[in-house]
Design a protein around this nucleic acid. Structure first.
Lengths: 246, 246
DNA sequence: CGTGGGATTGACACGACTCAACCCCGGTGG
DNA sequence: CCACCGGGGTTGAGTCGTGTCAATCCCACG
């Protein structure tokens, strides 16, 4: 059902590098932990399932837990007073959700597909952090990474025309699949045109028009609902870099 | 000369809470450190002066040092292949500059005023991090904070019309002065219209027109070059929140 | 006094938004 | 079984906000 739940990769290095509880290996908090620490974390964590459109938490809620997205896709949004929203990021299987040093979440987290998360209570996390210095370092890395991708998004939204922005989104999606070892020919794309528009600072109509333009130019194919195939990586790449030529 | 260098605040709490070497108290890495740690840091750090328009480091340079901006204002920019640039943030006295867990800087750092920085070699920082766990926690806090403000910026750039964006910028500037205890009637504004435009995803002409519109509406005054006075906080606030009314 | 960078202002073009109609498809219930 | 409904997507026509290009102004500085 969920396009992301079929995967089972071999460990990257010998030994237990995957958190057996949450399956996290790629981007989650467990990545650099050794077996002892993993057991420690695992004993404190617990699973929950959410339906598509389910809300994990809302902007302003007390940040009582951190989550690892075991499987599924989430969008993170900030709401404006007038009802418009800005998507500040998408999250995929293995990603960390809701980590912050503040005491409330800074955005909503809503699932785009039926999903499973591994949740960890904040006090337990704080204990773990005290016990395992490596873990704190890990969070720092993740935070720096997140900052980097938000800045990338900012550049796209601030300085690129519509078609270039859509190209960056498609490459982002492609990359999310690539680093997870997911099928790369046809990409699962559970987000609606409206989601993509809110991510790129456009309207859903503009996104829709851009997709059909890309189809006509032979840049992409859409074999079915919620799927894309990138036919011309080169072309998309040069678009994403701001080449408005041809 | 530099509008930010006149300040000398009393310590917030009793004891030595300000790094005597770098003067950092507000936002820099030294904030939560006790005297012993401060001495430790101070003995490894060193000062440098930069002229206005001086470059501290460039995107892609090996991240060999971290800096604390003792005094002055910096802009952080990402460059696009076609020459356009996006300002991903401004930094003020006391702020940390160039901290990352990656091995290259993700953006350029250019001074807008004559500035002084306190620099610390990366290997020494790594040692300090090992020796003082509190410091690592501090960096995590700073990173989370930075992420939050980048997301704010993203919302403004992605979803607000020009006048609302300019209002958010003015309030940002006001806040930067407020938390530093700097004069709040007339704010020092060392950035050019082009800098502001690159921060907000606009053109310098649009920024200029918006400023004159604000002047005519009585929202602001500009007593001199590089200075603004916010006459109607309320009005700017409601603009910044997306109220396009009146 | 001349020079150059920053800022302002105007005329115009164009890209993206708005509003609206329509299609497609899956689900639901009569 | 089929009519109805609603959500997502596409497409068109017209408007409007910004971008573009260019002229002019201001002022600090050499």
């Amino acid at each position: 059902m969920n396009p992301f739940d079929v995967v089972r990769h071999p460990p990257l290095v010998a030994g237990r590098t995957v958190c057996e509880t949450c399956g996290s290996r790629i981007a989650g908090m467990c990545k650099p932990l050794d077996a002892a620490v993993l057991d420690d974390v695992a004993s404190d964590s617990e699973h929950t399932d959410l339906p598509a459109r389910g809300t994990l938490f809302r902007e302003g809620d007390p940040a009582k837990r951190v989550y690892t997205l075991i499987d599924g896709v989430a969008k993170l949004t900030r709401l404006l007073p007038d009802g418009k929203q800005q998507v500040v990021g998408f999250r995929f299987a293995g990603d960390l959700l809701g980590f912050t040093t503040r005491n409330t979440y800074p955005f909503d987290a809503e699932m785009l597909t039926p999903s499973r998360v591994c949740k960890l209570e904040r006090p337990k996390l704080d204990e773990l952090l005290k016990r395992h210095p490596l873990l704190e370092r890990r969070f720092l890395d993740l935070c720096v990474q997140e900052l980097g991708s938000t800045q990338e998004q900012l550049v796209a939204v601030g300085r690129l025309p519509a078609d270039c922005r859509v190209a960056t989104f498609l490459l982002l999606l492609d990359n999310a699949h690539r680093i997870r070892g997911l099928p790369l020919k046809t990409l699962a794309m559970p987000m609606t045109r409206a989601d993509i528009a809110d991510y790129l600072g456009l309207t859903l109509e503009t996104v829709s028009r851009t997709f059909t333009a890309f189809r006509k130019r032979g840049l992409i194919r859409e074999p079915g609902h919620g799927q894309v195939e990138l036919l011309d990586h080169e072309g998309l790449q040069s678009l994403a870099e701001g080449d408005t030529e041809h």
